[in-house]
Design a protein around this nucleic acid. Sequence first.
DNA 1: TTAGGGTTAG
Length: 820
Amino acid sequence: MFSLVPTCKGRHACKSFPSLRVCYQFFSSATNSLPSVSDGFGTEKKRTHFGLLFQSCTKLHHSKCLHAFLVVSGKAQDIIFSSRLVNRYAYLGDVSFSRRTFDSMPRKDVYTWNSMVSAYVRSGRFREAVDCFSDFLLTPGLRPDFYTFPPVLKACGNLNVGKKIHCWLIKLGLEWDVFVAASLIHMYSRFGFISVAHKLFDEMPFRDMGCWNAMISGFCQNGNAADALDVLIEMRSEGVKMDPVTVASLLTACAQSDDSLSGMLIHLYVIKHGLEFDLFVCNALINMYAKFGCLGHAHRVFYEMQVRDLVSWNSIITANEQNDEPMTALGFFNRMQLSRVKPDWLTLVSLASIIAQLNDAEMSRSVHGFILRRDWFKEDVVIGNAVVDMYAKLGAIDSARTVFEGLPVKDVVSWNTLITGYTQNGLASEANEVYCMMQECKGIIPNQGSWVSILPAYTHLGALQQGMRIHGRVIKNCLYLDVFVGTCLIDMYGKCGRLDDAFSLFYQVPRMSSVTWNAMISCLGVHGHGGKAVKLFKDMIDEGVKPDHVTFVSLMAACSHSGLVNEGELYFHMMQKEYGIKPGLKHYGCMVDLLGRAGHLDKAYSFIKTMPVQPDASVWGALLGACRIHGNAELGKIASERLFEVDSENVGYYVLLSNIYATTGKWEGVDKVRSMARNRRLRKTPGWSSIQINNKVDVFYTGNQTHPLCEQIYQKLRELTEKMKSLGYVPDFSFVLQDVEDDEKEHILMSHSERLAIAFGIISTPPKTPIRIFKNLRVCGDCHNVTKLISVITEREIIVRDSNRFHHFKDGTCSCGDYW
DNA sequence: TTAGGGTTAG
């Protein structure tokens, strides 16, 4: 709202100074506000009136009107007026107008240059600010003063420039000006030279609030909350009270160091000293409570705020987004738009994550388009990474790749995001490819995030050697104690068959977090050591680590694999009663699997019927799998009917059902399932198996005939089949869904990927060497039988890890006891 | 008339 300062009184001013009257009228019409002329221009000096007019320009078009007036009245060349315009345009957020005004000035003084430099800094255009400062230095007859340096120090992009400026300041004797000194402290802290900043701070002859705050925030931003607290104590001992700036810095430090007690004490201080209406303080409080997971407190602060800015909205949106409340977050986003607050690129970073959580593919395109229209990929690499992450999480990995390729700048996080995207979408080879590309990329150094991205891909591929190479790099970088990398390594060793190595690593890494325990319990489970998994769970409780929903999934799966039905049921109830964890679909799936595998098929079916949530494919799939093990075609039919209602695309279930009919002699059923699969034009997920020999991984697809040793492999398989038949092997054609002759079916079974890999292992390694195979799907029943026989014929141990668990074949038996 | 220290990020 336009207003003239009420202290200027008297109706004579307009007559005595007509130009001001014109200007005033100009303004009144521009702002649709016509305050009484008698309120205007009293006996103040001409320039003061103009000063007030400049201050009155609270919107960009006010400034433009005033500018036009100055041009019309021939005062635009006046160095004082145009300098103030430079300032005002920058204050109103339009630095290009500042620059145009600046360039049009025939003569410039120190004030003009200072205004232009600070205009750039105010709008975050630091490089242009430094360039402008350099031009200033080249201007003959003008020297920067103590107003020039604080913005320049804020803008300088590297420590060397900062040090150079510090030297000048010493020479000019401006070092101890409080504004300058605070800027120096801030600059050194920003570059991580906190000790230099602290030394400067200690030597200061006089400190004002800005200097104390610069030092405290310096420590806070370097993650050193304890030292920040020491400075705070010193400050308060000198009788200086915390102001909103101090509080906002400290709240951020509390959030970062997860110190909820101090955070709440500061909140009390805020209320006691009436700082709860400060915008920055409130924004920092929302952020802090969100980090503590106290969404209710964050909401309360937000609702009680009297003034909210873009940061407030972004903070409350992010608070909900990061606390798994995407719908609420989206609600705040909509309300923000209704409040006419325009989103910035940071809002869109949160929005991308919200869309991924909501799994809304349509909205993901809108978000992408919104960013493209505003050209915000240039704003910061963070927003590009957020979009790559969004697409990857939605399963649109090709879109993620396209966005990644088009990013103007890529940092290590961009690469990590894409690698994680491939890994999480089950594309481990592509993840490895991207990881290799990243290593060849100049200026990108893999970090912890990179190991955490790539290790699960190696686990998936069973690429132990590559995984071990990463382990070597981790040790070299002294990162082996990092809980995330440590957990990934445990998982990798465990799932690549090195359970002992996984265990020894488990005792080396910090075990405060449940994730490490979950990984180890899960590894024990897939190896069929249910009892050890239960023991480890008890150790976990004894060490005071709180189990989470993942712990119970791993634990119940381990019980299921080992037939520990009572224990599994016990933990399902314990999870709810003692830990208040509401069972999810995965827990229900585990329970059905547990009961079904053990032969309690009716109990499993009743259990499904009492579920409070709609069963998904994994739950019905578990029942169908159990029906196959126990040859129950009747229940299998019911399970498959439900299954095809929720997931009619997964060909694996058709194979299972056909197998149930075949083993129970219901050949009509087999035909029916085959025609169903054919009519729905289902294509089987390509099965592949990999084997690593001499650091080289060979991948075999079912029916693969392109391998250089293809001839020898099939020859070996024919040879083995003959020997197996003499031991009583009869091929089980129920695992072949194709409607072909028996000869063809036998050939299809023989060219299953795991058999090709095993045969390749036999011909490529010395006799009696153990063979380790990885398969992306579950091993079929016929291959399971065949592998048992091959282990007898060749006197080899054969270890097969399929998508479900480990099978350790030795002397004609399997560690899973056919309980898979 | 011009300047410092504060809040949100993948």
